[in-house]
């Protein structure tokens, strides 16, 4: 593995609000690029005041569809995260692992609605 890179979430989303999956996608794209280049990545949540699951699903959860779990564990770390936000991230990651194990079943199920009757 090469250099350690710090991804500052505050700088990418332009403030302390991490509440949209679009912003999460921006963070994800930067992390994914560095992981593909075999860099170690530290994600800094310094000055983040509001964080929701949809943001973390996009930013970090979806990495589990692209990289082996061992690589993520080896190369990725977080800093400046409050214990309650850490707990949320843990749930996001546990959920993502299960989600991608079953993903084919989920995606195959997406069909059109039959009608609008109750």
């Amino acid at each position: 593995m090469n250099n350690v890179n710090i991804i500052r979430v505050f700088d990418i989303v332009g403030g302390g609000l991490c509440v949209s999956s679009d912003d999460g996608q921006l963070v994800h794209d930067q992390i994914a690029k560095l992981l593909r280049e075999k860099h170690n990545v530290i994600i800094s949540f310094e000055n983040i005041d509001t964080l929701i699951s949809a943001f973390l699903n996009a930013a970090i959860g979806q990495l589990y569809s692209e990289f082996p779990e061992e690589d993520i564990r080896e190369c990725l770390s977080v800093e400046n995260m409050t214990p309650e936000d850490m707990e949320l991230l843990k749930r996001v990651i546990d959920n993502a692992k299960i989600y991608f194990e079953n993903r084919k079943n989920y995606d195959d199920a997406w069909k059109i609605e039959v009608n609008d009757e109750e």
Binding site: G24, I52, S53, N57, Q62, Y64, L88, R91, A96, Y99
Partner: peptide, 19 residues
């Protein structure tokens, strides 16, 4: 139900309501 989501694609989801 935790883990259930109608999202498809690469972004997982499914526990906003459970939270």
């Amino acid at each position: 139900e935790e883990g259930n989501t109608t999202k498809t694609g690469t972004q997982p989801g499914g526990f906003g309501l459970a939270l």
